[in-house]
């Protein structure tokens, strides 16, 4: 049973999730291979974030199965019966997956450096000296080598998110999950976080990214998955899905995103004209 699931790093089969009577996911099938970058797109409420949280067991499955690295997530199959995994086993599974949150969730009582060394030292049992050296390298990687001793409250949103990425990478995860990593950022700070993610993708990190950044998805993703109302509507190469969508729902969504972007651009132009009229 479990053999063919090792072919993909992540394999989700018929995944469903309900919160009470509220069905959020209705039968998601999705495979992600090692080294692949997959962007999940779709309107809010489509279930993208819930799906991501299911992979890391921040929510429990209602139905279906998810395998990560050939191992069933959250459950163990013995004699044809599913057994819930122990707290320690769940923790072990999570430690192989890195996660970056929309609202960063850095530990505010620790410096940037301590945030990054926390899990290697206290989960993996890496020595403090080695963890510190690796953490400083990771902070350099995300361009924050000089901010190691700063507390999160002393960093900008973009810097905090980059520390959060370094913190997740410190566990050397097989898979990185990004849950709308730039949605809580001021527009001028989005670029620095996307740049770090672009580097990670170029290095061959396996990434599943929930995002609203269409340009990023088009440029970086190997595959984009469009979700709506708890299901996968269509998926494929970025250009295929974003430029020539097969499904009407995808077209509607992309049209709306485009209109919003245009009206924003229009707004910017009007503002610029207005400012120019003041100058003269």
């Amino acid at each position: 049973m479990s053999q063919h699931h090792a072919d993909h790093l992540v394999q989700a089969v018929n995944v469903t999730k309900s919160f009470g009577p509220n069905k959020v996911l209705e039968g998601i099938d999705l495979d992600v291979d090692a080294g692949e970058v997959v962007c999940l797109l779709g309107p809010s409420g489509s279930g993208k974030t819930t799906f991501l949280r299911l992979i890391n067991q921040l929510e429990t499955l209602t139905g279906g199965r998810i395998w990560v690295g050939g191992e069933l997530v959250g459950f163990e199959e013995r004699n044809g019966k599913l057994h819930t995994r122990t707290d320690a086993d769940v923790a072990r599974q999570r430690s192989r997956i890195g996660m970056v949150f929309q609202r960063f969730n850095l530990f505010p009582h620790m410096t940037a450096l301590e945030n990054v060394t926390e899990a290697p030292v206290h989960v993996k049992g890496v020595s403090r000296r080695v963890a510190r050296k690796q953490a400083l390298e990771l902070l350099d990687l995300v361009g924050l080598g000089d901010r190691a001793r700063f507390y999160p409250s002393q960093l900008s949103g973009g810097q905090q998110q980059r520390v959060a990425i370094a913190r997740a990478l410190a566990m050397k995860p097989e898979l990185m999950l990004f849950d709308e990593p730039t949605s809580a950022l001021d527009p001028e700070l989005v670029g620095e976080v996307l740049a770090v993610m672009r580097d990670l993708a170029a290095e061959g990190t396996t990434m599943i990214v929930v995002t609203h950044e269409m340009a990023f998805a088009r440029e970086v993703a190997d595959r984009v998955v469009f979700m709506d109302q708890g299901g996968v509507v269509e998926q494929g190469a970025p250009d295929a899905v974003l430029l020539n969508p097969r499904e009407e729902r995808t077209r509607t969504f992309l049209r709306r995103v485009k209109q919003e972007a245009e009206s924003e651009a229009q707004h910017d132009i009007e503002l610029a004209t207005l400012l120019k009229s003041f100058e003269s």
Binding site: R94, M99, F101, N105, A119, K124, A164
Partner: peptide
């Protein structure tokens, strides 16, 4: 904030830790 527990658990910490 609940996000703190989630971030800690996502790093592989048990609930107690």
């Amino acid at each position: 904030d609940k996000g703190q527990t989630e971030a800690a658990q996502a790093l592989g910490m048990s609930r107690a830790k």
